[in-house]
Nucleic acid binder design. Sequence first.
DNA 1: AACCGTCACAACCGCATGCGA
DNA 2: CTCGCATGCGGTTGTGACGGT
Length: 303
Amino acid sequence: MARTPSCDKSGMRKGTWTAEEDKKLIAYVTRYGCWNWRQLPKFAGLARCGKSCRLRWLNYLRPNIKRGNFTQEEEEIIIRMHKKLGNRWSTIAAELPGRTDSEVKNHWHTTLKRTVHEQNTVTNEETKVSNSKNERDPVPKSGIASLLVTPPPATSISGSIGALSPFSTSSEFSCTTSDLTTSSSSEMLVFEDDFDFLDDFTENVNENFWSDLEPYLANISNKPNETELQIETNCALQNQDNIQILDACELSPNQSSSENLILESDFGCFLDENTDRTLDNFWGQPYVTDMSFVRESEYIFMM
DNA sequence: AACCGTCACAACCGCATGCGA
DNA sequence: CTCGCATGCGGTTGTGACGGT
């Protein structure tokens, strides 16, 4: 189901991600955030291109990823929105908390497209039969079939689209939580308890998860200076107008003044705040952090 | 058991977009 | 306005799993 690892001309690894690579990426992103995807793999000790890292994180490793089969309700939403919007996968995925545009797209191509085609074919045949017999009352439909035959009024769809906040693209959602789109308060940012992305690791390491992950944290090459990181973070916390944007020259491992801006996220302290918890307690509880100091309009996460 | 076709999905690729210099 | 860079998005591909013969 996955590709065989290989290397391209520049020495960057390609293909399936290994558990070790995943750990490295998780360790780095949870501790330092995604200040620059292109530079990140170098400091995280990954022989991957930034694009690959970003994709891996957004689609499989970030919190709140919802795995498993699509529910009928989700499929109905996909079909309905695809009928209205076409291949706007990110927009469609935004309506499905925890689902990525990639996952929605794949599910459409592998399952729903065929279902829709078959249903439409059946519908056309039924229509022909119905017309030929001059029937007045078509057979009632339900579920997905009803969407294909009797789509809801456009207003119901446009209404939901109109309700999307600026954070509602799948990638924005993927940062943390859909709560941003509905929360009337910026007081608290809650990470739901969907930490399935760690299941693969916890199956093997169990209560030793953090101790197992720690070497990857410790071995992150050229990680930002801890003291400077803390200083900058504290300064940023006192300056609400510049909360997330820290000058990379203060944090960049190579001290280059021309480095990119760092988007400070709460993930920066993610591990530090939670390493004291036991594995069971930690992953069984929602991650709650005080975000009251951040203006809602300035939420910027790991994009 | 071996082969083959199909399916599901992870990952890659190229283009589009946004933004700062 | 233009250019370059980083990121986002959607299409496509490659590969293992699985079922049928």
